[in-house]
Design a protein around this nucleic acid. Structure first.
Length: 557
RNA sequence: GCGGCUGUAGCUCAAUGGAUAGAGCAUCAGUCUUCGGAACUGAGGGUUAGGGGUUCGAGUCCCUUCAGCCGCGCCA
């Protein structure tokens, strides 16, 4: 588009200046063209003169002046080019580049903002990955929103994305055993027995619900079973129920996985053993104190990690190593794991394990999102699964709605802890950013309904004289629309979904301003038609942004 | 002790190494109120935690000090 054309012309100017001896440089610098922060600095600005000065010497402003001189009107694209500040070149582009933006949006529609930079590269995003011993909680919620949106972003950029969640269902894990014991204790209690909960048992209400379900279906049938056998049976039953519940919770949140990968199957299929054998074969495993260890220190980890305990049971790390080995064997070009903050210490060992297996650890990328604090009336709502006062994702959705929940989880950089203000999220006012954004969408729909009422159809951009668009409110809005493709590409590349929520808010604000300044459906037919194109284009860009975020675009509110 | 994240306006947070550090909320003052007022305009408010360094140029990169949160198992 326009920027490639401008960059090409700048390159030509540079070459020409070098040939005439006015500039000296060895390597053609990258031509960065950015919309300036301050619109008094033109439509696009480039720092190429300063880059050249740093590379080959010279005074930036003088270099800039020579480039401007050679650039001329850049083949008719540029109205004015000027040197500013420390050596920036500010370009004022002929206004019809904005018309191209509108025409492009009209043609691309729901694909506007998407690209093919991924070029079909196979990429896997793993997120949520909860223990199947309880419902999805608010703590999982951020991971679900972040992982899902990163997957959406990558898909929008032409990657071949696989969404996957790992089920931590290893039958001999202490967590799952504890869970089974808790269900068992509640079962006994539900039948009126005085039976103690295990130490570190799961106190959540849902455990009692599971027990009651078992009583309802089977009555006292399991009362005489040996405890161990009964616990195992209950673990399996409860796990199935929880997994189904988790899927339901996530579906309610707009999250669906292509693959649910069970840890238990890794043990059953012998893949854990195989991975361990491979590590032994490669000489990266050794025995000590009756246990088998991975020599992860040889690959940058702080200490070696146990693979098989002295009691013969494989550790979580062993299974996780087998899991990542399996991912690599499935042929992904890139693997992204999305983990909570308590897992940051596992990056080094997971990469070490992968490297020890002969896979490229650089293909494995781990995104750590920081914790969520729920605030209600300024007070922190406590979350602890075992204590039972956990906040469930389904409760949060019931409270504030799916859209607000997703938007709030995605508002901040993943690196920052997130304070989730419940009152704000459910307030139906302009203070609530998700309402502000959705309101803009609904308002546009309302304008389009109005146009329909008075019998004006929204024309195609190509059929309209767009040169009547000259007001600041109109031009600012179109410039914002023009940013979307770069924004999505950048948010995808940096794995930063929060750029989208910010863009949505900015776009909504600029639209509201436009709305105040520019009446759309009015007496002047030419202006009405052109503005309808602008409004419809805004609708498209806003809806596309919200779609990537997994948030609905309401026609009415 | 080791490691991670964070520290920016009264509050919550933005800012590919770029120009005068920006939004929202709150406060104060206004607009408009026939396309949805869930809107818009303006003002005040800053030593980007402190110190050093790198360079044309640092909130951003490096070093260091301080503060807050989190993690550091033959748990998962």
């Amino acid at each position: 588009m326009i920027r490639e054309k401008l960059a090409e012309n700048i390159r030509k100017a540079l070459m020409s200046a070098r040939e005439s001896g006015e500039l000296a440089f060895e390597n053609m610098p990258e031509i960065a063209l950015d919309p300036p922060k301050n619109k008094a600095f033109g439509d696009f600005t480039t720092n190429v003169a300063m880059v050249l000065a740093a590379q080959s010497g010279g005074v930036p402003r003088e270099i800039a002046a020579r480039i401007v001189d050679k650039l001329g009107d850049a083949g008719g694209l540029v109205v004015r080019a000027e040197v500013a500040g420390a050596g920036f070149i500010n370009l004022y582009v002929k206004p019809d580049w904005l018309h191209d933006v509108l025409r492009r949006i009209g043609v691309e529609g729901a694909d506007y903002g998407h690209s093919n930079v991924g070029n079909g590269e196979k990429i896997q995003v793993e997120y949520v990955s909860a223990n199947p011993n309880g419902p999805i909680t608010v703590a999982h919620g951020r991971g679900a929103a972040v992982g899902d949106t990163i997957a959406n972003l990558l898909a929008a950029c032409g990657y071949d994305v696989t969404r996957e969640s790992y089920i931590n269902d290893a039958p001999n894990s202490t967590q799952m055993q504890n869970f089974g014991k808790s269900v068992h204790a509640r079962y006994m209690q539900a039948l009126g027995k005085d039976y103690p909960m295990p130490e570190d048992g799961y106190q959540g209400e849902y455990v009692m619900d599971i027990a009651k379900d078992i009583v309802k279906e089977y009555g006292e049938k399991f009362l005489d079973l040996p405890v161990d056998e009964c616990v195992l049976k209950f673990t399996r039953m409860a796990e199935d129920e929880m997994l189904a519940l988790q899927k339901q919770n996530l579906a309610q949140f707009g999250v669906k996985f292509d693959v649910w990968f069970s840890e238990a199957t890794l043990h059953e299929s012998g893949k854990v053993e195989k991975a361990i054998d491979e590590l032994k074969k490669r000489g990266h495993a050794y025995e000590k104190a009756g246990a088998l260890w991975l020599k992860s220190t040889a690959f940058g980890d702080d200490k070696d990690r146990a693979l098989i305990r002295s009691n013969g049971q494989p550790t979580y790390i062993a299974a996780d190593t087998a899991y990542h080995y399996d991912k690599f064997q499935r042929g992904f070009d890139r693997i992204i794991d999305c983990w909570g903050p308590d897992h940051h210490g596992y990056i080094a060992r997971t990469k070490a394990a992968v490297a020890a297996l002969g896979c490229d650890p650089d293909k494995l990328e781990v995104i750590i999102y920081q914790a969520v604090r729920l605030l209600s009336g300024g007070e922190i709502v406590m979350m602890s699964k075992r204590a039972g006062d956990v906040v469930l994702l389904s409760d949060l959705i019931d409270e504030v709605g799916k859209d607000a929940a997703r938007f709030f989880f995605l508002m901040r950089s993943s690196d920052s802890t997130l304070d989730f203000d419940l009152e704000l999220a459910k307030s139906e006012s302009s203070e609530n950013p998700v309402f502000y954004v959705q309101y803009a969408h609904a308002r546009i729909c309302s304008i389009l309904r109005k146009a329909e009422d008075v019998g004006v159809a929204v024309p195609a951009a190509a059929d309209v004289d767009l040169s009547v668009l000259t007001a600041d409110g109109e031009l600012d809005l179109i410039k914002k629309l023009a940013e979307l493709p770069d924004l999505i590409a950048e948010a995808a590349a940096k794995r930063e979904p929060h750029r989208l929520t910010r863009y949505a808010q900015d776009l909504a604000a600029i639209f509201h301003k436009f709305y105040t300044e520019c009446r759309v459906v009015g007496d002047d037919e030419a202006v009405t038609k052109a503005r309808l194109v602008v409004v419809k284009s805004t609708l498209t860009a806003l809806a596309n942004t919200l779609t990537v975020l997994g948030i609905s675009s309401p026609d009415k509110m």
